[in-house]
Amino acid sequence: MIPLSWYLVVAAALFSIGVYGVLTRRNAVGVLMGVELMLNAVNLNLVAFWRYVTPTKMTGQVFAIIVITVAAAEAAVGLALVIAAYRTRRTVNVEELDTLKG
């Protein structure tokens, strides 16, 4: 059987790619995609731990399903905000959203 650590390494790599996306993307939708990658890394972790640590209790799977569901709700609100920003500013570039500063 594939050892647990392999899954954790893949998840860590995925999480790092997500963090990189969040930090470097200037487009709000791009940042959101980075966050989704981070969440998927978490799901991978949860399901791998479920399989290897507590295969008889469903905690890990339930947690992963809840994460997926909440991520969908979060994306809905987030994209609504992106659209609202686009309507008032004609841009979704986070560097150009700079009325508030100090």
């Binding site: 963090v19 969040v22 709000a28 940042v31 959101l32 980075g34 966050v35 981070m38 979060e74 609100v77 987030g78 905000l81 992106v82 609202a84 920003a85 008032t88 500013r89 986070v94 959203l97 009325t99 508030l100």
Partner: peptide
């Protein structure tokens, strides 16, 4: 208001 919310959302999600 919208700009504040978008920034809040991006930080919060991450």
């Amino acid at each position: 208001s919208v700009e504040g919310a978008l920034k809040y959302f991006l930080y919060g999600a991450a």
